[in-house]
Nucleic acid binder design. Structure first.
Lengths: 219, 219
DNA sequence: GTTTTTCTTTGACGACTGTCCAAGATTTTT
DNA sequence: AAAAATCTTGGACAGTCGTCAAAGAAAAAC
């Protein structure tokens, strides 16, 4: 009897769990769906001008639904920031994996660098907007620091592998290396939105030399 | 007669000019006074959260007066951005002028770098906020680009002089040089507001080596 | 097929925004 | 001292904001 009861309750609880999990999955799916809509709105308007109603218009729901899936605006935007990471921060590793020579790695990195600049420019300006926002409002700071760390790791893997292929060693710390390339990206973004294609091209032409500057070649 | 008339009208117009000029001076004095109040409010709250009433509370006037001296909010903020330049972008030249050896120049630059980081942190985070804002809204873009250019020139003068004192030449373009040091500053600012003093200290320790990286020493 | 739960819409709320204006205070001119 | 020009105030305006709740629609459970 105890066996039967145990069996029944197990089945029952398992079924319940499965249902609950399905519910949760569905709930989470909507959450990320709305977070993605938020991300696109933010990328288009910037943090300062993004309102909940505008976000809702970029989705297929009305504005009230946002408070069903998110506690408040901060919760929603935080989730959008996390989505940014998923969307945008896992890209250069392919370059590292597929390149077999130093020149190839460097060339493909430069290509990818300016490719994502042109393709995802609005998303990238949002990233810098949110990173700066975290200087005024501590809410996103933890997520921002985490994403920034991942970006640093990513850059470091590339430069490290480049040094390896070149038979040398990195010339600067991971932080300095990241900050240098990130600074170039930021400046290219500024000129991109200014419509100054020449300046962007100049940065592209300079980038290989900068990368070389960041590694100490062996003779 | 024509002489007298000319004389009279000249005197009259001169007097009028003088008065008009005094008026203009007074008018402009108030403008910059209010622009400075705006600057401090922006530095404290960030662009997204700064309202006209908040600005007025940081001055000794009521909110209505802002529309007497400024056309609209954008006009006011643009003027505040220009004030930022006056307040904050004319500082390293002393370092260049007073230093007589390479080590001294480098040391004083590093000292000043982290001194202004600690002292004017809110103002600097505002700068980055506004620079990013210009990626979404073209209004400030011209002023932003101008200020960015001045910052670049400033950094370039320092690094150039350092290379000179060292008997070498700069290793990167002015743009790359600026962007590298600016990136370090931005990162230091982020860690400053995070309260991560260790990370700031690490950046300070690394900075001299980065500067050396930016110049090709002669042997 | 009916009940119960889950999801979505819609409209309202109080607070806050930039802008404008009439009226008062202050200064300058005559 | 009177008049005119200038400056400043404080409130009203239309709009937008984030938030919430009641009611309806859809889906799930029975």
């Amino acid at each position: 009897m105890s066996v039967t009861i145990r069996g029944v309750t197990e089945v029952a609880s398992r079924k319940q769990d499965r249902l609950a999990r399905r519910q949760v999955d569905k709930f989470d799916a909507r959450r990320t769906e709305l977070a993605v809509a938020t991300l696109h709105t933010l990328a288009e308007l910037g943090y300062a001008r993004t309102s909940l109603r505008e976000i809702a218009q970029n989705s297929e729901f009305s504005h009230g639904v946002l408070h069903y899936y998110f506690e408040d605006k901060r919760d929603l935007i935080t989730e959008a920031v996390r989505q940014y990471e998923v969307v945008c921060v896992t890209r250069d590793d392919e370059v590292v994996a597929t390149s077999t020579t130093a020149e190839q790695l460097r060339a493909e990195f430069v290509a990818m660098f300016f490719d994502t600049l042109g393709r995802d420019a609005p998303l990238h300006r949002l990233w810098y907007d949110l990173r700066n926002q975290s200087l005024f409002d501590g809410s996103f700071r933890a997520d921002v620091l985490e994403i920034d760390g991942h970006r640093e790791d990513m850059v470091w893997r590339v430069v490290n592998r480049y040094a390896e292929l070149l038979g040398g060693t990195p010339a600067a710390s991971p932080g300095t290396t990241y900050v240098t390339l990130d600074g170039i990206f930021q400046r290219a973004l500024l000129h991109h939105f200014t419509g100054n294609a020449d300046a962007v091209a100049q940065l592209r032409a300079d980038l290989p030399a900068v990368i070389d500057l960041l590694v100490s070649k062996a003779e």
